[in-house]
Design a protein around this nucleic acid. Structure first.
Length: 479
RNA sequence: GGCGUGAUGGCCGAGCGGUUAGGCAGAGGUCUGCAAAACCUUGUACACCGGUUCAAAUCCGGUUCACGCCUCCA
């Protein structure tokens, strides 16, 4: 079965063929480290995580490069406001970014090149563009890219330059350029930039935004590589500019497959600072949600679909979507814990029907994911598996061996999903006093003193612990 | 103004021409001392109007609404 992706270049579902058999080179646009990333940003990174995990699941050896934009207008502006050097300032948010990725269980990329570590590569690329006639020095001393020189400018975003809204783009210093839509390759140093500058053949300055991705992607993945991803808002102009720069410089095709992730919305509206409706991961963690719950929520909706993040301030359930994630995960947790218990000691005999059930689940799971990352189909396969196994357990029990086989399939699934906690079920330490209450309840039950047993159960509930009676005795789990 | 995406049952969300998506919530039941968990049963869903077809949530046209890009915003 072949892996398929929706390629923005063709706007069609295409069979994925890697340049080198069995290997994928993938460049994923990373964050601008001037602040904490919000969950909208993380939607893209979780999508990219799913992508790399599915590719690996399908047998590919993945090399993923994610850039860190650590020099641009915002990083300069805010570092100055904070009274810190650019590096000291961005270091804070680089670290925060990696912390957050970790909390969201995002598998690390192979490399995270920072823009400021690759200035010479960018300068070299800009020089080539100037030599080939695509770059020119504007009246203000900055270097610009002449979009009319590039044959297919705007082909990715399907932008035709004639139809553009007039008047909007002509502002501030745009007249320095030959054409309003020409973009900067190298920005000449200005007073406001302070001590942020690098020496170049065109004088002191700093790179334009788009050039960093061209330079760094080609440095690590070669002139022509398999995949490039980002949010839909990067499609144009950012990715079109990258194509223009890279292909003009090398004369080769730049990227085969472009994948773009849709936006996260808040209550059907755009997430924006002015509306005050954006959330950072740490805000949600403070509200008591876990990274895994946020991951599940972000993963839940197909990447090309807008994800509507529900927020009901003042309501009892402020974040209904996260609550739903919590209950869905709870169902899975109860299941994995149940299977783990059986794997550690079950008296049931082997079940002949297991293979069929597991094979079907595995096939559905994979078929869904390799079809343009159909996460919903994969989840349906998982939940159906849970129900079928639960039913088998209820009807005839599951042997220790069978339970182990189920666990190994769950681990396979979790290589992609990374939400299951198959093995590190945090068997929360039960405090001595809680265990004592639970034991007392068991005794009361033995004595058929139901009112006392129920009273103790309520007391435990007050203390935040839930009694779960199983055929093998009562377990205590946190609420 | 130009280009594009989407509207699915109480909520979230698959589906890409005929056959149960799945999750959450609700109702009834089995099990249990009672619960919880689990299992079984249960939902007049496909924005609106036309058209194509033996057959449309699924294809075509139109309408309405929402959203995005065209402003270095994932």
């Amino acid at each position: 079965m072949s892996v398929k992706f929706y390629n923005t270049l063709s706007r069609e579902l295409e069979e994925f063929k890697s340049i080198e058999p069995g290997k994928v080179g993938m460049y994923t646009c990373g964050p601008t480290v001037y602040n904490y990333a919000h969950i909208g940003n993380f939607r893209a990174y979780v999508f990219e995580d799913l992508l790399r995990r599915v590719l690996k699941y399908a047998g590919y050896d993945v090399t993923q490069i994610m850039n860190l934009t650590d020099v641009d207008d915002k990083t300069i502006r805010d570092s100055q406001a904070a009274g810190k050097s650019l590096n000291d300032f961005t270091a804070i948010y680089k670290e925060a970014f990696f912390d957050d990725l970790n909390i969201l269980r995002v598998e690390p990329a192979e490399e995270y090149p920072a823009a400021t570590d690759n200035i010479p590569e960018m300068i070299e690329l800009i020089q080539i563009l100037i030599d080939k006639g695509y770059g020119y020095i504007g009246d203000d001393g900055s270097v610009y890219y002449s979009i009319e020189k590039f044959e297919c400018y705007g082909c990715l975003g399907r932008i035709n330059l004639e139809g553009q809204r007039s008047g909007v783009r002509i502002s501030t210093d745009e007249y320095e350029k030959d054409q309003a839509a020409d973009f900067a390759l190298w920005k000449k140093w200005e007073e406001a930039d302070g001590d942020v500058w690098w020496e170049s053949p065109w004088g002191k300055g700093r790179p334009g935004w788009h050039i960093e991705c061209s330079a760094m992607s080609m440095k690590y993945l070669g002139n022509h590589f398999d995949m490039h991803t980002g949010g839909v808002d990067n499609m144009f102009p950012h990715h079109d500019d990258e194509i223009a720069q890279s292909e003009a410089a090398t004369g080769e095709k730049y990227v085969n497959y472009w994948l773009h992730c849709e936006h996260l919305m808040v209550n059907n509206g755009k997430m924006s600072k002015s509306k005050g409706n954006f959330f950072t991961l740490r805000q949600l963690i403070e509200k008591g949600y876990t990274g895994r719950e946020v991951r599940w929520l972000l993963l839940n909706t197909h990447y090309r679909q807008k994800l509507n993040f529900l927020h009901a301030p003042g309501e009892q359930l402020e974040f209904p979507g996260l609550e739903e994630a919590r209950t869905a995960l709870k169902r899975l947790d109860v299941f994995t814990s149940r299977i783990n218990d059986l794997a550690n000691g079950s008296k049931a005999t082997d079940w002949g029907g297991l293979d069929v059930v597991l094979d079907k689940a595995a096939a559905r799971f994979k078929a869904a994911l390799i079809e343009d990352l159909n996460i919903s189909g994969a989840q349906a396969a998982l939940f159906d598996l849970v129900r079928e196994i639960n039913r088998a357990i209820d009807e005839q029990g599951l042997s220790q061996k069978d339970a182990d086989i189920v666990l190994s399939l769950l681990r396979k699934f979790d290589n992609v999903l990374s939400v299951l906690d198959v093995d590190d079920q945090q068997e929360d330490e039960v405090p001595v006093d809680i265990q004592l209450l639970a034991d007392k309840r068991q005794q009361a039950r033995k004595d058929k003193n139901w009112s006392e047993a129920d009273r103790l159960r309520d007391e435990l509930k007050q203390a935040g612990w839930q009694i779960v009676d199983t055929p093998d005795g009562a377990k205590v789990v946190p609420l």
